[in-house]
Nucleic acid binder design. Sequence first.
RNA 1: CGGGGUGUGGCGCAGUUGGCAGCGCGCAGCGUUUGGGACGCUGAAGUCGGAGGUUCAAGUCCUCUCACCCCGACCA
Length: 479
Amino acid sequence: MSIVARAEDYSRWYLDVIREADLAENSPVRGSMVIKPYGFELWENVKAGLDRRFKETGHQNAYFPLFIPMSFLQKEADHVKGFAPELAVVTIGGGEQLDEPLVVRPTSETIFGYMYSRWVQSYRDLPLLINQWANVVRWEMRTRPFLRTMEFLWQEGHTAHATAQEAIEETLRMLDVYADFAINDAAIPVIKGVKSDREKFAGAVNSYTIEAMMGNGWALQSGTSHYLGDNFARAFDIKFLDQNNEMQYCHTTSWGVSTRMVGAVIMAHGDDQGLRLPPVLAPIQVVVVPIWRKDHERGQVLAHCDAVLAQLKEAGVRVKLDAREDQTPGFKFNDWEMRGVPVRVEVGPRDVQSNAVVLARRDQPGRDGKQFGVPLEGLAVRVRALLKEIQDNLLAQATASREEQTTRVASYDEFKEVLDSKGGFIRVHWAGSDADEARIQEETRATLRCLPLDVPEGEGVCFLTGKVTDRVAIFARAY
RNA sequence: CGGGGUGUGGCGCAGUUGGCAGCGCGCAGCGUUUGGGACGCUGAAGUCGGAGGUUCAAGUCCUCUCACCCCGACCA
């Protein structure tokens, strides 16, 4: 059992890491997986970081049901068209054929819409800012652990507002929240952008995305935020009386981040040794490995470990002692590196003697990442600083790698050449049509990931059509 | 749905012209080990994906079938 090199077979590397780091396992049902405790803890930390931000921006959690009447989906034409192919539908309940089939939610705009129409009467009821943590089901043809599974966990925020402007502000606010989480917690640099019409959410006016780059140069949509206009308000009759006693439709939004984010963390940071977790999200931030040769050393070393443990716990560090007696220290070093633990503390007889420890950092493999003779006194302060440094370094590395793999091209020939030789993100001025976009996808397997928001690049010539435009697009092969 | 592949102890695999079902890892017990993936000895564990057929004899040959994996079309 081991992990294949990324350069040799990236998608096998990904599956190897998930297996070796004990994150998840395929279930007996095709396309669905069991998230194991270590992987789930990682997800729980993702949840915690997002949930805190949702609360800070005024949202409350609630829970809406798993089953949705089929007729609800059908109320919004684009929505049903988009989701119909991937619905799981319940037609039998309690041994009886159901009068109306129930859809296992693929997303919850419709049931939220139905309830919101009952809850909103006056402008005083607005805005409505609700999030839910839930599982959803989409019948996928091709699946990959975390990146695309038939059932996945996510949060979906659904909000209703009095005006288009407020709803658009909310959409962009949540996009910022996602970007902030990705950058500061997951240490993944992301590009905020708007989706093309072809790529946008079924039923949305506009879809926004944070696009991240994985270790192989492929793009991964890591979070989305949709401005739904009054499409769902009209479909579900979400109306209110405004200050002038006039009936108005609400403007709604929805936004989601899923367990796919775990896949993003794996692929944005992992190396040939396995997982590399950003300290903010790591279930175990520091692992302590005791080392002894002779029996009499054992007690001293473990006592020393306890002192380390106590000090780090006191400082709020998530620390674990690996006191397994049936494994050698060398095995444990490799094991925890594979699992991506950011910092390792090694405690042996020599450290007991000198009242110190050895510190090893995951982002610098081998002897380079080791500090010897680190005094026990003040260790927690030093470790916390090191965790911060590792967090920053992972972000810096991922950013540098993304910049290195982002290319500007001026012609379609160059586009194809770069895509085949180098891959990564390709930045272009873009004035093409839906049909042009479809053709590029067909010919190159690259898709238009987004039109980046924060790029005042000025006018330029569209690489495909030759038209002058100020619109910029990023194309890439994507998961 | 199209193309390719695989089903044999828990996992990864080998199994020749059909002739006693094996190897590595893991697992259990005991002992020696432990500063970068330790070693020895002993042991447990398999209706060979399923059904049918050919044969004195099938993991192996034939027919049917099921499942899973990989590559495409759909997608957070």
